[in-house]
Amino acid sequence: MARPGNNPKRRIAREGFLTDERKAELAVNARYGGSGHHKRNPADYGLERTNPRPTKSLCDALKVIRLEQASELMRRGISRGAVSELAYDGFPKFIWCVDEDGEVYEAKTDPSTLGVYHGYRLEEEDDLRDYVRDIWKQRCLSVGQ
């Protein structure tokens, strides 16, 4: 079953939206928790079981991503300011990252788990993949990486 259509509200905030101070604060306060709905393998997330949903993207469809790796991807997204402007009590709803293999991941929080994110790989049919990659490249160049 295909995932529901692309959400046009998922957009990366303008560069400079987060100050360096706010990025550091967010990197400390936001944490990655994972979700059994996006995993085939519970890895080291402390999940009793996984329950992948047919309408959900799997974060481990290509490879198992351990908790520390997922947390690091999220921190890298924060450091690049690859976050949405939509926020709950200072937490962006979305954080994006591109890994060393060029795969794009999206982490999401909601009001019931404020500041705790679960993530998933953006699949090929998701138009946001190319958008995130383009922004990521621009921001990496602007910081000399």
Results as ranks from 00 to 15, higher is better:
residue 6 N to S: 15
residue 7 N to P: 00
residue 7 N to W: 10
residue 9 K to G: 08
residue 9 K to L: 15
residue 9 K to N: 15
residue 11 R to Q: 15
residue 12 I to Q: 02
residue 14 R to Q: 14
residue 14 R to I: 09
residue 14 R to C: 02
residue 17 F to I: 13
residue 17 F to L: 08
residue 19 T to I: 03
residue 21 E to G: 09
residue 23 K to N: 02
residue 25 E to Q: 11
residue 26 L to N: 03
residue 26 L to F: 06
residue 28 V to I: 12
residue 30 A to N: 07
residue 30 A to K: 05
residue 31 R to N: 14
residue 33 G to D: 02
residue 34 G to W: 09
residue 35 S to Q: 03
residue 35 S to V: 04
residue 38 H to Y: 10
residue 38 H to E: 06
residue 38 H to Q: 09
residue 39 K to C: 12
residue 39 K to W: 11
residue 41 N to S: 08
residue 41 N to G: 02
residue 42 P to V: 11
residue 44 D to Y: 07
residue 44 D to S: 03
residue 44 D to P: 06
residue 45 Y to T: 00
residue 46 G to D: 04
residue 48 E to V: 10
residue 48 E to A: 14
residue 48 E to F: 11
residue 48 E to Y: 09
residue 50 T to A: 05
residue 51 N to L: 09
residue 51 N to S: 09
residue 55 T to N: 08
residue 55 T to P: 00
residue 56 K to I: 00
residue 56 K to C: 14
residue 57 S to D: 13
residue 57 S to N: 13
residue 58 L to Q: 07
residue 59 C to F: 05
residue 59 C to Y: 02
residue 60 D to R: 08
residue 61 A to S: 13
residue 68 E to I: 04
residue 68 E to T: 07
residue 68 E to N: 10
residue 69 Q to L: 05
residue 71 S to R: 14
residue 71 S to H: 04
residue 71 S to G: 14
residue 72 E to N: 13
residue 72 E to Y: 11
residue 73 L to M: 13
residue 74 M to W: 06
residue 75 R to T: 03
residue 76 R to D: 05
residue 76 R to L: 14
residue 76 R to M: 07
residue 77 G to C: 06
residue 78 I to Q: 07
residue 78 I to G: 05
residue 78 I to D: 03
residue 79 S to R: 09
residue 80 R to W: 04
residue 80 R to F: 12
residue 80 R to N: 06
residue 81 G to Q: 02
residue 83 V to H: 12
residue 83 V to F: 11
residue 85 E to T: 12
residue 86 L to G: 09
residue 89 D to R: 15
residue 90 G to Y: 10
residue 92 P to L: 05
residue 93 K to G: 01
residue 94 F to S: 05
residue 95 I to H: 03
residue 98 V to C: 02
residue 101 D to Q: 13
residue 102 G to E: 05
residue 102 G to M: 04
residue 106 E to Y: 01
residue 106 E to H: 01
residue 107 A to V: 08
residue 107 A to L: 15
